[in-house]
Amino acid sequence: MKELLHNTLMELLGMEVIEATPDKVVMTMPVDARTHQPMGLLHGGASVALAESAASLGSLLNVNTDEKTAVGLEINANHIRSARDGIVTAVATPVHRGATTLVWDIRITNERDQLICISRCTVAIIARKAKSESNSRK
């Protein structure tokens, strides 16, 4: 899994995959200068990035990646509680697994298991393009 995160936003924000199955993805992210907003609190966008990362990874585990890939289609988030430091943990579980979309429920908690953010993410399943085809469009 580490190589999947290499040179990505997930690596930059310090996200780590703790568990990854088609039925559940658990990821962590530090609350520090990389993920703070100017007031020193966890940035809502960082929470959304963690939520979508967990949902996208889970979606990839639900498809034949030789033929298909998963891309975020829609995400919403309710920020329930703030955090200034420590580690937050996202637990993503699928609520719908269709042929062209997956919908995920993601709950982000702090180290005291207090709810920080609740999110719902819809991921589209699309045909994987050959690398030579996608590079020819650039």
Rank of each mutant, 00 (worst) to 15 (best):
I126V: 10
N110F: 14
T69Y: 12
S132C: 10
K129R: 15
S132I: 07
N76M: 10
K131L: 14
V31Y: 14
S134G: 01
G14M: 13
V48D: 08
V63E: 08
T65E: 12
V123G: 01
G86Q: 04
K68D: 08
A51S: 01
A99H: 15
G58H: 12
L9M: 14
D23H: 15
T89P: 00
E133C: 03
L115I: 00
W104D: 02
K24R: 14
R84T: 07
T35C: 05
I125E: 06
E19G: 09
T89I: 02
T8V: 08
T109I: 07
N110S: 07
C121K: 03
I125M: 08
V71L: 11
D66F: 13
V31H: 06
N62A: 02
A20R: 04
N76E: 15
H36M: 01
S136C: 03
S119M: 00
I75S: 09
A55S: 09
T21P: 04
N76Y: 10
L50N: 02
G58V: 00
A33D: 07
V88T: 05
D32M: 04
T122W: 15
M15L: 06
S56W: 07
M1V: 03
P22Y: 04
E67D: 13
I87F: 15
N64I: 02
I87T: 14
W104M: 03
Q37E: 15
G86D: 13
L41K: 09
L9I: 04
L57D: 03
T69Q: 08
R120E: 01
T69P: 02
I118S: 04
K24C: 07
V63A: 10
L41F: 15
E67M: 13
T122K: 10
C117H: 08
C117R: 01
D66Q: 11
A55M: 10
I126L: 08
E11Q: 12
T8Q: 10
I75V: 15
R34M: 09
T100K: 15
T122N: 14
T65M: 13
I80E: 06
M39I: 04
L42I: 01
L12H: 14
I108M: 05
H79W: 10
A55I: 03
V103G: 03
R81L: 05
V123Q: 14
T8S: 14
G98H: 05
R107D: 13
V123A: 03
D32A: 07
T21G: 05
H43K: 06
P22I: 00
N62L: 12
V88F: 15
G14W: 09
N7Y: 11
L57E: 10
V103H: 13
R97T: 05
A55N: 03
